[in-house]
């Protein structure tokens, strides 16, 4: 039944494959880079906030929680200002580039990855951390044990960040400009902005197929991350 519906759509697919491939490449490049950099920032913050007591901890936690639901359009607007000629990053000439899009997605993904990671590391029992310390573990050893124990939660955090990044449209549309080059390949056009463009122009079938590709990519990345998180249960 599904094949009866989808096959004619695929057969009538109006784009060049190189164009679609370039959109997928830009989408994955922007979102995976943003999530990778966000994870490097977010996990240490989660460990720090989860383990240490310091002044302003509750305030920082509430900022992280608020950031998890921050509107992507507003983030795009702020990043656009930051990279514009009048902004602090104006000298880097980043307007309508993939780098600006990465920056926008980092701002969106960091609170999500930090928030979910914080919940994951906080759920690791104090006794387990105590055991690592009692055996002569340094603070890095204890942190590694915690990361290892919280690996499923951390994998969920990365997936949530990736989902937030690759599915958002407002931010990348504003800072990236949804540009395709004269050669027909994407410059800053992602799957979400392409879907938005196709739908607006009334090409719903094309938008649907791009949507299906987007969902398939998310499922694929989810499967890979879940597989990596389930490594047989050894400490590292």
């Amino acid at each position: 039944m599904i094949s009866d519906t989808l096959l004619p759509l695929v057969a009538a697919f109006p784009f060049e494959w190189t164009y679609v491939r370039s959109i997928i490449e830009v989408s994955l490049y922007v979102s995976l880079t943003a999530v990778f950099l966000s994870t490097i920032v977010s996990v240490p913050i989660a460990l720090l906030v989860g383990f240490r007591d310091f002044r302003g901890k509750n305030f920082l936690t509430s900022i992280i929680t608020t950031g998890m639901g921050f509107p992507s359009v507003v983030v795009g607007l702020v990043v656009l200002f930051a990279v514009s000629n009048e902004g602090p990053l104006g000298s880097f000439d980043l307007v309508f580039t993939t780098e600006a899009m990465i920056l926008s997605q980092i701002v969106l993904a960091v609170p999500v990855i930090t928030g979910v990671s914080l919940a994951a590391v906080s759920s690791v029992e104090q006794q387990v951390r105590d055991a690592a310390f009692a055996m002569g573990g340094t603070r890095y050893d204890v942190a590694l044990v915690t990361i290892k124990e919280a690996r499923y939660g951390l994998a969920t955090a990365v997936l949530a960040g990736f989902g937030r990044a690759i599915s958002e449209v407002g931010g990348v549309l504003i800072v990236g400009g949804n540009i395709a080059g004269a050669d027909g390949e994407s410059v800053t056009r992602t799957l979400t902005t392409a879907i938005q463009l196709e739908a607006r122009q009334g090409r719903f079938e094309t938008a649907m197929i791009l949507g299906a590709i987007l969902v398939a990519l998310v499922l694929l990345v989810n499967a890979i991350v879940v597989r990596l998180g389930d490594d047989g249960g050894g400490y590292r």
Binding site: V128, D130, A132, A134, K148, E149, G233, Y235
Partner: peptide, 10 residues
């Protein structure tokens, strides 16, 4: 400790 507190490993 009173509780074993083993790591999630073999």
């Amino acid at each position: 400790f009173q509780e074993a507190s083993l790591f999630d490993a073999n």
